[in-house]
Design a protein around this nucleic acid. Structure first.
Length: 428
RNA sequence: GGGGGCGUGCCUGAGCGGCCAAAAGGGGCGGACUGUAAAUCCGCUGGCGUAUGCCUUCACAGGUUCGAAUCCUGUCGCCCCCA
């Protein structure tokens, strides 16, 4: 199989995606030929978050380097629950839930990975093989190769064993057996020899490698990426409105664009390397510009554009960018109607009767509550008094009312509360 | 089996009969400054139609008292020491 000029490990290394590898020299040698590289994703939700993007990028780079990526959707493991990195036992998901989550996540893999050609990604579901395993088979064929003494040493388990309040169930304790069995199965059936994942997966990956060696006496390899942390110490991937998801139904392209654009200066270089596919020269150039004048936010914009395009496609990224610059240009009034409607395509909006604008007009205090920009009249009053609210880009006070004079393009009024909470009202 | 301690608002954590909707910090939300940043500063942070006001909170259920987060009894949960 032809390999691209980019060496996989080197690529991961400069991008900051390489945390540890099993016998790095041997792994590097192994990767001089095209291999099958796998990563597992448990269907804990019907989408994936930006945090899951890290291991996903490892597969993307594998493919670009000439290897064949194999996605293992955890149809079986998702029913059990991975204790790695979790401080408490989780409630079991129903089979239906796992099943539907699987479908939700599949579209993301298909979008980010090339599904065609000899290097086309393979998407599998470990329920297909784990589901066939009987309890007796599991204990004899898998369990016999594991030492409980070793299992309880794993970080994911150890912490829970010493923690009286939490403990760990036999179910979650067994998780590593299943993931190890995945590796064995994939080695046998698809010739998969490398597993990648986040650093929290190291224990599971090693367990898989051990199993393969014991059963078929062959060496397999593992590579992990570091945990992505934010410069300010906060948890990566969270915003005021919760996690940032990779599908538009949960996080709009616009919201994702904003997420990247608002990245801390210090995080931008790293994010450019990890979350975009921009070539090294471009990245280095951007980092340079960024260091000279972070205020210009050239690198922020490039990051937001590239990362959003990677997930949602070029068109969506472009639209998000246009909307962002329109909204934050300050003067909403001068925007053409089409741009305005486009910019607010994803923002909350509401319809109102135009007749209300006549006479005394509509009190903003009430409207803020109606539109959800404020939770109660009391809060509404507070925001207005603080000068947090603007109508069509102009600040308003507690006693202001909306009249026909506020209408843009014969029927639109733009409300904003705080810096980033927009709402479009339509009047007809 | 015996003995001791703890359970407060989103989180940490003071309060230990009235001055308590409850200190302080964190977080969150607004504002100023800026670059839709960081740092800093200011305000808000149980709910309520605008309040020298009303309602609901200090694990839960009762009780004592003019009055309880604060005292008593029981229940639940957790921690520690001895055996």
């Amino acid at each position: 199989m032809p390999l691209s000029k980019h060496d996989y490990l080197d690529e991961l290394r400069w991008r900051g995606l390489l945390h540890q590898a099993t016998d790095e020299a041997a792994t590097a040698r192994h990767l001089t030929e095209g291999r099958h590289i796998y990563c597992g994703f448990d269907p804990t939700a019907d989408s994936l978050t930006i945090g899951n993007l890290v291991p996903l990028m490892m597969l993307v780079h594998a493919q670009r380097a000439g290897h064949r990526p194999v996605v293992v959707m955890g149809g079986a493991t998702g029913l059990i629950g991975d204790p790695s990195g979790k401080s408490a036992e989780r409630t079991l998901q129903t089979r239906e839930m796992v099943e539907s989550n699987l479908h939700g996540q599949r579209r993301i893999f298909e979008r980010l990975l090339d599904m065609t050609g000899p290097q086309g990604a393979i998407i599998t579901n470990n329920l297909d093989w784990i589901g066939k395993l009987s309890f007796i088979d599991a204990l004899r064929d898998v369990g016999k190769h594991f030492s409980v003494n070793v299992m309880i040493q794993k970080e994911a388990v150890r912490e829970r064993l010493t923690n009286r309040e939490q403990g760990i169930s036999y179910t979650e304790f067994s998780y590593q057996l299943l993931q190890a069995y995945d590796f064995l199965h994939l080695r046998r059936e698809l010739g998969v020899t490398v597993q990648v994942g986040g650093s929290d997966q190291w224990g599971n990956i090693v367990a898989g490698g051990d199993l393969v060696r014991r059963v078929i006496g062959e060496e397999v390899f593992g590579v992990t990426a570091p945990l992505v942390a934010k410069a300010d110490g906060g948890k990566f991937g969270k915003t005021e409105s919760g996690a940032v998801w990779l599908t538009a139904d949960r996080t709009s392209p616009y919201a994702m664009y904003q997420f990247w654009l608002n990245a801390d200066d210090r995080d931008v270089p790293r994010f450019l390397r990890i979350f975009t596919l921009l070539p090294r020269a471009d990245v280095d150039g951007l980092i340079d510009v960024h260091a000279q004048d972070p205020g210009a936010r050239t690198a922020h914009r490039a990051l937001a554009r590239a990362a959003t395009a990677l997930i949602h496609g070029d068109d969506e990224a472009q639209a998000a960018e246009k909307a962002a610059s329109a909204l934050f240009s300050g003067d909403v009034t001068s925007l053409p109607e089409a741009t305005l409607r486009e910019a607010f395509a994803e923002a909350p909006s509401s319809d109102h009767s135009r007749a209300l604008l006549g006479g005394e007009g509509v009190a903003l205090i009430d409207l803020l509550v109606e539109t959800g920009l404020a939770k109660s009249k009391r809060e509404s009053r507070e925001f207005l008094a603080n000068g947090s609210v603007s109508v069509n880009g102009r600040k308003v006070g507690p006693d202001d009312r909306l009249t026909p004079g506020h209408l843009l393009h014969e029927g639109l009024i733009v409300l904003r509360r705080g810096k980033k909470n927009w709402h479009l009202t339509r009047w007809s």
